[in-house]
Amino acid sequence: MIKVALAQIKPFLGEVNKNLDLHLDLIEQAHQNKVNILLFPELSLTGYLLRDLVPEVALHPSQSPIFQRLLKACQDLIIILGFVEEKEPGLYFNSVACLGRGQIFHIHRKVYLPNYGMFEEGKFFTPGRAITSFDFPYGRAGLLICYDFLHYGTSYALFSGGADYIFVLSAAPGRGFQESPGFASQRMWELMGETISFFSSVFVFYCNRVGFEDGKGFAGGSFIYNPFGQLIAQAPPLDKDMLITDIDPGDLQAARQKRFYRRDNRPEIIWRSLEKIIRND
């Protein structure tokens, strides 16, 4: 069994040091609960609605003392967290990093920056250009950030890259109130979580934040789907939570023996088809 914790937290906007303390507290809590993997939400080190604060909170992971402190605190624990990355001077990315055991395993830079309605990420961030599965101590994983996950091609790329675990870090404001409790927007995350986990035979972990920034209320509702497409754990909407769940990696093999999407995947056909579409465009 692997013990996974989803930290449904309320980061402080623009205050990296306060957020570092928040992360260190939760890392300590994770150690006490013998957690193996601890997942934070999108931009967990900085808060979400940064706008012109983006350059002020940006980090360079390999040189950042903050990352050094996180690595030191983690020991054997693996954490996945969100931050603003200054990849080269003046280029800022909405990034997530998977780290622990003294090293950074992978950094993903958000590819799909929402830039419509109340969202304006495209104005402040540079879009990432790659979606890559990577090896970490519990198998093969993929990282996605919020709106990345709502484009199903991203999960397909991770699935084809052999990911067993898809970690989605989110800062999704609730929108659309309705008769049942919670926001209408929660449904799209669950719909995608269920679909991707079922049709890719992977675990999907979705960690969303809570709290308010400028009147936008982040909806929480973090969840885990197993490789059979079953919801196995969920945090409440709106309120802070630390959702700790045991998952059975044996489910990966069992799901793939039942449904053969994985074995029968033909990425080369999809690749050729896409290539034709792109060339003819």
């Binding site: 009147g215 909407p237 709106l238």
Partner: peptide, 13 residues
């Protein structure tokens, strides 16, 4: 609309 949810949301806000 779910009045209890809205109440929880607005009081939290």
């Amino acid at each position: 609309i779910n009045l209890e949810f809205v109440t929880h949301f607005l009081t939290s806000f």
